[in-house]
């Protein structure tokens, strides 16, 4: 889980958590379709990987690494604002 890595970019891995994703890069049109898909309760969360900062270390987190645990994913407008 969450090993220390060099800074990268956040990106969706292209599939729901815990499901295999084809290695083949998606066509642009398909990717766009994926992006406009609505989030729905009772459905799988879109998986992603993102760089982060945790307890003095720069790390890389992948949502699907947390399968088996409850996850609270919070978005907020910006650092130095309340959450």
């Amino acid at each position: 889980m969450a090993e220390e890595v060099k800074a990268g970019c956040a990106r969706p891995t292209g599939g729901p958590v815990g499901e295999k994703v084809e290695e083949e890069p998606q066509k642009e049109a398909e990717q766009k379709k994926e992006e406009t898909k609505m989030i729905q309760v009772g459905k799988k969360a879109p998986d992603f990987t993102a760089p982060g900062y945790k307890q003095g270390k720069f790390i890389n987190e992948k949502l699907s690494d947390h399968l088996g645990k409850w996850v609270v994913l919070c978005f907020y407008p910006g650092d130095f604002t309340f959450v």
Binding site: V41, G42, D47, L67, W70, L73, F75, Y76
Partner: peptide
């Protein structure tokens, strides 16, 4: 150009239970 205050509860199977 920013993210709104979204909060998602994801269960151990990766299912979104609430947001």
């Amino acid at each position: 150009g920013v993210e709104t205050r979204g909060r998602f509860l994801i269960d151990p199977d990766g299912i979104i239970q609430g947001f």
